[in-house]
């Protein structure tokens, strides 16, 4: 715990900035119902009103308060992205570790299967599958988590492969330890640094991916507030010189830049510890 505090104190400006950005977004998401001046779907004024004291960043294409929707949007989008990332990590790391630890035909089977899934660009694959199964939130979560878990599988398998050849893992095998011990006690603790960094990167990717799908009208469906669909709904405004769509788009960028700044620093620290 003290080591963590010390590490945090040694963080450079960019990383502190990133932490600040992520913290602000998280607070906004958690406190949305408490601090939002209006409801998520309440129509409160005219269409595309400019910023004023009653509407801090104006209103959207249906006259809803944009600031309130940004807060609720944070809640929805982050929660879904986090759920998907967690799911994809749960699936990806377990199978990846398994493939690396057991090897043989199980590894071959899993790896070739993932190769086939990864041969498709994620966005195209998701679009094709969603065109068939329809765009509900559960479908979205399962499809993206599954597609994303292939990337997690690749990484965790590669990391675990490097660890599995270490003599301390061999020593545990020779002791007669079972698969679960090997994965949980020998491999996982040593795989944590790259996996934590990857979690940040995958979260960004998933977050951007959902935003992109929503922006295309195929992700989270209205009237649920979601940053990607908010960009889409207000896209028309830009040609009139009204910058409403830049707010949700900027919010997406704000969070991902924050996470990336932290991950960048974390990778730097982790690589420095190794040599």
């Amino acid at each position: 715990m003290t080591a963590l505090l010390k590490l945090l104190r040694s963080a450079p400006f960019s990383a502190r900035l990133g932490m600040g950005m992520v913290l602000i977004t998280l607070l906004a998401a958690i406190l949305a119902p408490a601090i939002a001046p209006y409801g998520e779907t309440a129509v409160t004024g005219d269409v595309w009103l400019p910023a004023s004291s009653s509407h801090w960043v104006g209103t959207d294409n249906l006259g809803r308060d944009l600031f309130s929707r940004l807060l609720f949007g944070a809640r929805n989008t982050i929660a879904i992205a986090f759920l998907i990332t967690a799911l994809s990590f749960g699936v990806g790391t377990v199978w990846g570790f398994l493939a690396a630890t057991v090897g043989g035909w199980i590894d071959q089977l899993l790896s070739r299967g993932v190769d086939i899934l990864m041969a498709f660009p994620t966005l195209i694959f998701a679009l094709m599958v969603l065109s068939v199964v329809g765009t509900s939130i559960p479908a979205l979560v399962v499809v993206i988590a599954l597609l994303d878990s292939t990337r997690v599988f690749r990484l965790s398998r590669a990391v675990a492969m490097d660890i599995a050849v270490m003599e301390y893992v061999e020593a545990a095998r020779l002791r007669g330890e079972g698969l679960w011990w090997l994965m949980r006690h020998e491999i996982l603790p040593n795989a944590m640094p790259p996996l934590v960094a990857e979690f940040g990167l995958r979260f960004c990717f998933v977050f951007l991916f959902i935003a992109a799908l929503s922006f295309l009208g195929l992700g989270i469906q209205p009237p649920t507030a979601d940053w990607g669909s908010m960009v889409r709904e207000n896209a028309g405004a830009i040609t009139f010189g009204i910058y409403t769509p830049l707010w949700p788009a900027g919010a997406i960028a704000f969070l991902t830049v924050g996470v990336n700044l932290i991950v960048d620093w974390f990778l730097h620290v982790a690589s420095g510890l190794e040599d």
């Binding site: 922006f215 788009a249 997406i252 960028a253 830049v257 990336n260």
Partner: peptide, 14 residues
Amino acid sequence: LSTISFPEFFVAYI
């Protein structure tokens, strides 16, 4: 780092 964190449509609308 910032650019890769931006969604494409954000860059586009800017």
